[in-house]
Every structure is written in structure tokens, then in C-alpha cells.
Amino acid sequence: MVSLDFAAVLEQWPLLVQGIGATIWLVALAATLGGFLGIACAWARTWGPKPLAWLAAGYVESIRNTPFIVQLFVIFFGLPSAGVRLSPEWASALAMVINLGAYAGEIVRAGVEATPRGQVEAGLSLALTPGQVFRRVVVPPALARVWPAMVSQIVIVMLGSAVCGQISARELSYFANLIQSRNFRAFEAYLVATAGYLVLAIALRRLLLWVGPRFLFGTVWRG
């Protein structure tokens, strides 16, 4: 008779809490840096010089068309042969930033391309430099337009971070695996971790949808 024993998993709660903390750290870093990378990419593809636009397009396409786990393996196992050696946690963070940056680049670009021409011209006529116009006039409303898509993508990247345990980054799924390899309660350990991810996903979505309009691009542009 197989019976479920969640207590055997839950008594390891310090590990689970540590894992959740690491997952939050990873996603916070990825969302911040990946967001900036995405905006830079969107700029390169819409306003940037041709070679830069091609470069950005190549980056976006190669990331969007390969699995995250393969990107992670290339960074962790491949980069050392180029002399770059990152700890599993930093390799994971880098992979997540690069991954999110590509998707965010596409999302933000859609928002930027929907900016009415007149707003740009109005900005330039106020003697703002093109850089200032992009940063102050184009990006905030563009972000506001695409924010729901952006939030979804950040959540997807957060869930994708479960794979980072495969290169021994100590995040939530890593500890779920560790616990099950110690007490042989595989199903219970994975179920608890899965529930943890679900709560994280819901909380992260709520938080970002709340934070975005209030702190990132101002209330003026809502709706």
C-alpha cells in the first residue's frame, strides 16, 4: 500500500524556504536586467542603426527558437571553454536574463511600434534629444500598453527557472529533488514544490500588475 507522507517533506521546510528565496532572487534579477535588455533590444530594432538592429534580431530569434534548458547548458558547460566560469546560480541568472531579454525585446517592440508618430515629433520639437524622446516619451506608454504581456512573460521565466536545479543552482526545484533523493518521497516533494511555484506565480503576477502602473510608467498611461 502506497500512502502519502507530506510530513516527511514539510519537516524539511528550512530547505524549501531557502529554495523559494533563491527563486525569488533569480526572478527579481532576471526581471530587472532582462527588462532593461528588452528595452535596449526594442530600441535597437526600431530606432537603432542597421547593424545593431540585425544583431538584436539575431539574438532575439536564436533565443526564442531554442529551449531554455539548452541555453542554460551552453552557458554553464560551454562558456568555460571560452574562459568564462560562472557559479550555477550566476549562470542561471545570466541564462534567465538573456532569455527574458529576448522575449521582452519583442514585447516592448510591439509597444514601441504602436506609438503615434505625433508624440515623437512633439518630443523632438521640445528640443529633447532622440535618446531622451525614446526614454521619456516612447517607452513609458509603450510599457503601459504591453505590461500584461510582459508580466506573463516574467511569470513564464520564473516557472522556467525550475530547470536551473539541473545545473545544481540551489533554487526551489533543486531542494525538492534533494529532499526526494533523501527520503524517497518523490511525489510528495514535487507536489509541495509545485504548490510553492503556483503560489509564487499568482503572487508575482498580482505584484507586478500592481507595481507596474504605480511605479514603472505612471498612472497617466493606464488603460
Binding site: V2, V155, L159, A162, Y190, T194, L198, A201
Partner: peptide
């Protein structure tokens, strides 16, 4: 909500080891 809100990796583990536990 459940399938979009949890990692595919965990869904795979649960499908593989969970269904077996159910016999």
C-alpha cells in the same frame, strides 16, 4: 491557472511518479 502557474518540469515529474503511485 494550475497548468499555466506551475513549471512544466514539475508537471512532468508529477505525471511520471504521481500516476504510478495511484496504481
Amino acid at each position: 491557472e494550475v497548468f499555466q502557474g506551475t513549471p512544466l518540469l514539475m508537471q512532468l515529474f508529477l505525471a511520471y511518479f504521481g500516476l504510478a503511485l495511484l496504481g
